[in-house]
C-alpha cells in the first residue's frame, strides 16, 4: 500500500513540474521586467547619481534631470487625495457595515465597487471637462476668498493644479479604501461592539472608541494601499495636473508627478532623456512597491489577528 502511494506520487511529477514551471516562468518575467527598468535607467543613475533625487530642475531633452519637484508633487497629490478619501472612505465603510438597511446593503456596496470599475482615462476626461472649470470658477475663488488668498491657497486660479489632481485621485482611491477598511472593520469581534453598547455607549462612541481603535492596523493598511494607487496613477493625473514640473508654491500651482512625466515625455525621449525617465520609473517602482509591501503587512496582520 505504502509502495503504491509513493508510486503515484512519483508518477505525478509532470504535474508538479508544470506548476513549478509556470511559477518559475512568471518569476523570470518579473525579473526581466525589473531588470529592463534598471538597465534602461543605468546610464542616468551613473551620470547623475543622487542628483536624480535631490536635483531641483528637470529639463527634459537636455538635462539636468532632478526629480525633486516630481517627487514632491507625487507625494503632495497623494496627501491631498488621502485627506479627502480617508474620512469619506472610512465613513462610507462604517455606514455600509452598520447603518445602511440590510435590503439595500449589497446594492450600495456594488455602487462603490462600480467606482473602481471606471477606467482612469474616463476620470481624467471628467476632471478635465467638469472639475477643472468648476475648480477655477468656484472652488479656487472660494478657498482664496475665505483665506484671503494666503498660503496654501494663493496663486493663479487656473483649475489645472495639484489640488485638482489630488481631487481626481481621491475619487479613484475611494473604492480601495472603502473595500479594505470594510473588510478589516467587519472582523472586529461582535462581543466588543455589543459590550460597548451594553455599557450604555452610543453608536458614535462605539465607532470612535471601540471599532476604529480595534481595526486601526488594518485601516492603516487600507490607507497605505490607497496611497500606493494614488502614487502610481498616470493618465488621469497627466490630464489634469498641467504638466509643469516645478516645486509647488501652493495648492493651486501646476505640477507633474513621476508617473505623469513618464507618460507625457516618454514618446519623445531618447538617449539620456529616456534613461532619466527610466530612472523615474525605477523610483516609482521602489516607492510603490515599498508602500504596497507595507500595506500588505498591515492588512495581513489585521486579518491574522482576527481583528
Amino acid at each position: 500500500m505504502a509502495e503504491r502511494i509513493r508510486l503515484s506520487a512519483t508518477s505525478d511529477r509532470p504535474y508538479a513540474l508544470l506548476l513549478r514551471g509556470a511559477a518559475f516562468f512568471f518569476g523570470a518575467v518579473i525579473v526581466v521586467f525589473v531588470w529592463s527598468v534598471v538597465k534602461t535607467a543605468w546610464p542616468a543613475l551613473h551620470q547623475y547619481t543622487y542628483h536624480l533625487v535631490t536635483g531641483k530642475s528637470w529639463i527634459s531633452g537636455t538635462g539636468p534631470y532632478g526629480a525633486l519637484a516630481l517627487l514632491t508633487d507625487t507625494v503632495l497629490t497623494t496627501l491631498i487625495a488621502l485627506a479627502i478619501a480617508v474620512p469619506v472612505g472610512l465613513s462610507s465603510a462604517l455606514a455600509l457595515l452598520f447603518l445602511i438597511p440590510e435590503r439595500i446593503k449589497s446594492f450600495a456596496a456594488s455602487l462603490v465597487e462600480l467606482l473602481a470599475a471606471v477606467p482612469s482615462v474616463v476620470y481624467g476626461l471628467w476632471g478635465l471637462v467638469y472639475l477643472a472649470p468648476w475648480l477655477s470658477h468656484t472652488v479656487q475663488p472660494f478657498l482664496a476668498g475665505i483665506t484671503g488668498g494666503r498660503w496654501p491657497f494663493n496663486g493663479a486660479q487656473e483649475g489645472f493644479s495639484v489640488l485638482l489632481a489630488g481631487m481626481v485621485l481621491s475619487v479613484m482611491i475611494q473604492p480601495t479604501i472603502v473595500a479594505i477598511s470594510r473588510d478589516v472593520i467587519a472582523v472586529v469581534p461582535t462581543d466588543l461592539i455589543e459590550g460597548g453598547l451594553s455599557l450604555g455607549a452610543t453608536r458614535s462612541q462605539v465607532f470612535t472608541r471601540v471599532v476604529l481603535p480595534t481595526a486601526k492596523t488594518g485601516i492603516f493598511g487600507a490607507i497605505a494601499l490607497g496611497a500606493g494607487r494614488a502614487l502610481g496613477e498616470t493618465i488621469a493625473v497627466a490630464m489634469v495636473i498641467g504638466s509643469n514640473p516645478q516645486l509647488p508654491h501652493s495648492l493651486f500651482t501646476t505640477g507633474a508627478t513621476l508617473a505623469s512625466t513618464i507618460a507625457t515625455e516618454f514618446g519623445n525621449a531618447t538617449g539620456n532623456a529616456g534613461s532619466a525617465l527610466a530612472a523615474l520609473a525605477l523610483m516609482l517602482m521602489v516607492i510603490t512597491a515599498s508602500v504596497n509591501a507595507f500595506a500588505r503587512v498591515l492588512t495581513k496582520r489585521a486579518r491574522g489577528a482576527g481583528v
Binding site: S57, I59, P133, G159, F160, N244
Partner: peptide, 28 residues
C-alpha cells in the same frame, strides 16, 4: 525644443502637442 522648469513662470501650463496648447488656452 522645450521650455522647462526654471525657464517659465510658476503659473504656466504645459500642454501636449499643438492641440494641447490650444485646448489649454481655450480653457483658461
Amino acid at each position: 525644443t522645450t521650455f522647462n522648469q526654471g525657464q517659465v513662470p510658476s503659473n504656466s501650463l504645459g500642454g501636449q502637442k499643438n492641440a494641447g496648447v490650444a485646448a489649454d488656452v481655450q480653457q483658461t
